[in-house]
Design a protein around this nucleic acid. Structure first.
Length: 566
RNA sequence: UGCCUCAUGGUGUAAUGGUAACACAGCAGAUUCUGAAUCUGUCAUUCAAGGUUCGAGUCCUUGUGAGGCAACCA
């Protein structure tokens, strides 16, 4: 399979416990069959990753007798597109999971599903209703009062069969008739008040084309599809909890099903500073509030990938957040921790100065160039080293200089000393400004005795160590500094019922720096490579916008900054 | 004003009737040619009230709070 870790979490969550109990009881011939069942009506997001890691993870943990299916729940052709099918497949694979031969579509079962519907009609458990949508809503009752059965509910089996067949033949208009299960109009569970099973939809389906004009509802197709595939454990999010009795009703009332799956529900993921519903994400895309589904600020899998977040980080995050029925709000910091943890291991280091100030080393020969050896990874000698050129004029980070330093600032200040990492120490002798008082350059002197980390006798070691780039050798590259998409933790909730969550969009969520100065080795950064600009951030060479010799970087996440200005 | 589900540090989770623990975040220190990483320490938790029990985060009752449910969406 993939490199995705097949080890379960240290302690079992309630779902895995349930599965372990089933296994211990010898149910399902010792097999566990799960499924990830997205509707192809949008791109996958980090919340789906939780479900993917759960379903595919459980299958891996119980190998080799177990498997996880990828099934597209494509029962509503008005919302679904092949673009989404393709992106979902790519995202699941990228996350490191493999469905093998088990790729399915609910639409593959349309004929069988139709047959089961005729069976229910024959058993007197389903009927064709002629009521309008409004009439149905009115007769369904309310949360506190029972509904009343449709006047059409008592049609004979023969009439129902005839009507249902004619629905399929296309004799009726959209909305004219629906097939309903005959269950209980007085149930406290609204979903049991004769739910619709089939509706007429004259829409082109991305797979079945115009072969059908009636389409099964989710509540009908889902349990039956699960059963047809031999799914043992149907795991979904909490909002489907109330659908469970209907799920079980169908499994129990349809004869000839090869399996008897059961459904269990877990809480969906909520993350601070973002929105997670497909509807809202779709709106951000359609209204051009972001640059498409894979905008690096999006919580989509494709957006996160483009930002430079690794599949391994996402898997690790999913393991960290656990699995419960508690409706929680996870701090984005937890995700960031997983990202940094992974990126720290795999990213080579390089110097990138985002907001440069020029430094002139006045006692360094004008025409001299020398190369310093810099390790590519401080914790991995095998990553090798690279040569970083230095000459008389350099760029340093403007944050690394303070003319009027606050307490505890130990980078460069007038009269102060810092080490240029892997080179030598410099002392700031003079601050050159223009007429408006803007700093133009810093004139410094270097101390030859401090090369390569050496500290002359009797001298105190400067606390500050900063990165730098040779002005003569620097390359310019765009660096996009991504930040949280929203300014508030819960844009959803804060917007309220009818409120507009887009008013909380963070105007500073993407700042593109065009004049970043990078060390020359970065010129050849491969598109799709991860780097750490030392002391600054983890960045990712954008796989689409980077061109040979002209990389474009996305800031994936900043480094933690332990220094707080006093 | 019904039914269902849930409630453990700031956040996410663990503890399966027997010492409330882990991670993140925060704080402090050590270390460091990244104010990163690493290491050490530290702060901080069972929604409330009753009950059962030798013993309750766990079981029961009531209350409170949060989420969900009345598409021919999924």
């Amino acid at each position: 399979m993939s490199e995705a870790a097949a080890t379960p979490p240290a302690s079992l969550d309630f779902i895995r416990e349930m599965i372990a109990a089933d296994l211990a009881a010898g149910r399902n011939d010792g097999k566990v069959v799960t499924r990830f069942p997205p509707e192809p009506n949008g791109y996958l997001h980090i919340g789906h990753a939780k479900s993917i890691c759960l379903n595919f993870g459980i299958a891996q943990e119980n190998a080799p007798n177990s498997r996880c299916h990828l099934r597209f729940d494509d029962t509503n052709p008005t919302k679904e597109e092949v673009e989404y099918v393709d992106s979902i497949k790519a995202d699941v694979q990228w996350l490191g999971f493999d469905w093998g031969d088990h790729l399915f579509f609910a639409s593959d079962y349309f004929e069988k599903l139709y047959g089961f519907a005729e069976q229910l009609i024959t058993k007197g458990l389903a009927y064709v209703d002629d009521q309008t949508q409004e009439e149905m809503r009115a007769s369904r009752g309310t949360l506190t009062s029972p509904g009343t059965r449709s006047p059409y509910a008592d049609r004979s089996v023969e009439e129902n069969l005839d009507l249902f067949r004619r629905m399929r033949q296309g004799e009726f208009k959209e909305g004219e008739k629906v097939l309903r299960a005959k269950i209980d109009m007085a149930s406290v569970n609204m979903h049991m008040r004769d739910p619709a099973l089939y509706r007429i939809l004259r829409a082109h389906h991305h797979r079945t084309g115009d072969a059908w004009c009636i389409y099964p509802m989710y509540d009908y197709a889902h349990p039956l599809s699960d059963a047809l595939e031999g799914i043992t454990h149907s795991l979904c999010t909490l909002e489907f909890e109330i659908h469970r009795p209907l799920y079980e009703w169908l499994i129990n009332n349809v004869d000839g099903l090869p399996g008897a799956p059961y459904q269990r529900e877990f809480a969906r993921l909520n993350l601070t500073y973002t929105v997670m519903s497909k509807r809202k994400l779709l709106r951000l895309v359609k209204e051009d509030l972001v640059n498409g589904w894979d905008d690096p600020r999006m919580p989509t899998i494709s957006g996160m990938r483009r930002r430079g977040i690794t599949a391994s980080a996402i898997r690790s995050f999913c393991k960290t957040i656990g699995l419960t029925k508690f409706n929680s709000l996870t701090e984005i910091a937890l995700l960031e921790h997983s990202i940094r943890e992974d990126l720290n291991k795999i990213s080579h280091r390089a110097y990138g100065v985002l907001r440069p100030i020029k430094v002139v080393i006045t006692n360094y020969p004008e025409d001299q160039v020398e190369y310093f050896d810099a390790p590519n990874h401080p914790e991995d000698p095998e990553a090798g080293t690279r040569q970083v050129p230095l000459c008389r004029e350099l760029y340093i980070e403007s944050d690394d200089f303070m003319e009027f330093p606050s307490d505890g600032f130990h980078r460069l200040k007038p009269g102060g000393e810092v080490r240029l990492k892997f080179a030598f120490c410099i002392i700031c002798q003079e601050v050159i400004k223009d007429a408006e008082g803007n700093i133009l350059e810093l004139r410094c002197t270097y101390d030859d005795a401090t090369r390569h980390g050496k500290k002359p006798e009797g001298r105190t070691k400067p606390k500050g160590i900063i990165h730098w780039v040779s002005a003569r050798h620097a390359i310019d590259a765009p660096v996009r500094l991504y930040d949280r998409l929203f300014t508030v933790e819960t844009p959803d909730a804060d917007a309220g019922e009818d409120g507009d969550f887009t008013k909380f969009l963070n105007p500073a969520s993407c700042e593109t720096i065009t004049n970043a100065k990078l060390e020359p080795s970065l010129k050849d950064a491969a598109p799709g490579s991860h780097w750490q600009f030392e002391r600054v951030a983890y960045v990712y060479a954008d796989p689409i916008d980077s061109k040979p010799g002209a990389p474009v970087f996305n800031r994936t996440v900043t480094l933690k900054d332990g220094w707080v200005k006093k």
